[in-house]
Structure formats: C-alpha cells, structure tokens
Design a protein around this nucleic acid. Structure first.
Lengths: 104, 104
DNA sequence: ATAATAGGCAACCAAATGGTTGCCTGTCAA
DNA sequence: TTGACAGGCAACCATTTGGTTGCCTATTAT
C-alpha cells in the first residue's frame, strides 16, 4: 500500500496513468511523446509504477506494451479513503464547534 | 491536489491522520506520544498536512489543537479514483486478452 | 515571580528522488 | 546482413526529504 501511495505522489507518474487510461497498451516511446523528459526518465517512472503493481507490461518482440492495472487504485479507495468517509460529517461538526468557540 | 498526494505519500503522515481520525483535536505533544520521532519531526509532518489542508489547527492558550479535515481525502476519491473505476473491467479484460495471447 | 510546560525557529545532515548523458543489447526490415 | 529502431543499464548530478540537535518564546501554575 505504501508503494502505491508513493507511486501516486508524483504528477508525472499520475499523468502516465492518465495516458494509459485513455489508451491502454502503449509502448515506452509512445508514452514518451510530447513529454518534457528523456526516455530514461520515463522508464524510471514506469518501473516505479510497475513495482507498485499499477502497471503491467508485456514484451512483444522488441516492443514493451504497458497496461494500466486499476486494482491498487481501487483498493486505496476501498481500504483507505472509505475509512475517512465514515465520521466525515461528525469531524466537520466538531471542527465547526471549535472554530465557533475560538473567541472565548 | 498535488500537495495532497504528496502529503499522503508518507506513512508517518498517514498514521498521524489515523490518530486524528480516532481522536480529533489533539495537541502536538499528544500526537508525539509513542512515536519513534522527535517532536520537531512531527511538527514538520503536521506542517505538510496543514499545507495540504488535511489538518486544521486552533491555538488555545499555549496549546495547538489539530483537527482532521477529511475533505481533500474525499476529493481524491471523487475526482481522481472514480475516474479509474470507470472502465476498470474493460481494462482488466483487455489485459487478460493480452496475457492469453502472450505465447503466440 | 519563577519554574515548568507547549510549541517555534534555524542550522545542519544523510539518504532518497527525479533527472541527465553515454553506451550497450536485442529485434526487425531492406 | 546490416542499419535502424525499441528498449535496458549504469554512472553521475542537483534538489528535496525526513530527520536531528540546540536554543528561543509564550503561556500557565505554584
């Protein structure tokens, strides 16, 4: 889980996920197009995404196709974010109370 | 949004949010209890959480109370994670197809 | 008044991060 | 078969990050 959060912390990596979300199964060079980064930098980002299991790759001849794996993202939502949904209203209510009694 | 992702990338910071989730409105020293970190390290983490608007503070005499703000977490879920929910099954189906034809 | 308590500020440090350049390997097409 | 293309490896670099120690300020309680 920690690896996923760390992988998602970088905007370049999130935009790579976005690119795979709009078109899945791209090669490294395709993913590089239009980015202000060298191919090697993108390789490193993709490696981090792969380690976090957010991207799966398949070699096909000399090409390496990259596929988005949405499962860890889904798990962050289910296992982590939902925990903070419960009691969200309660927390906000408490915060409001505190803010109101600030000038005591 | 980027600040929130960056703030959530660190396990210590996530555990501080957890602590505030179980008991809201704690002081700095309370949040330090039992952690293998100096008070100053915790201060820095809390500052990052505050910059990301994940924590709000209220001075009360010489004490500074820390309150969890669950809104940015909720937004990550709504604005970002949900985007990847759509088409999740499609993506997995495509991945499965690719994996199956791997041995051609 | 004064000591204890809660927190803030700043300098410093090692390690991790995000990026580069240079070169090498494997695969495909002419 | 040989050049072009897709990608991999490794060394190197600057900056950011997560942490420390030392000292200072403000508030509270005795």
């Amino acid at each position: 889980m920690d690896e996923v959060f760390k992988a998602l912390a970088d905007a370049s990596r999130r935009s790579l996920l976005d690119r795979l979300h709009t078109r899945n199964g791209q090669t490294l060079n395709e993913l590089c197009e239009g980015l202000a980064m060298t191919r090697q930098a993108v390789t490193k980002h993709l490696a981090i995404l792969e380690d976090a299991n957010l991207v799966t790759t398949i070699r096909h001849g000399r090409e390496k196709l990259h596929y988005l794996n949405p499962v860890p993202i889904h798990q962050i939502g289910e296992r982590w974010i939902k925990k903070f949904e419960r009691g969200k209203l309660a927390a906000l209510g408490e915060l409001k109370r505190q803010l109101e009694k600030r000038d005591e």
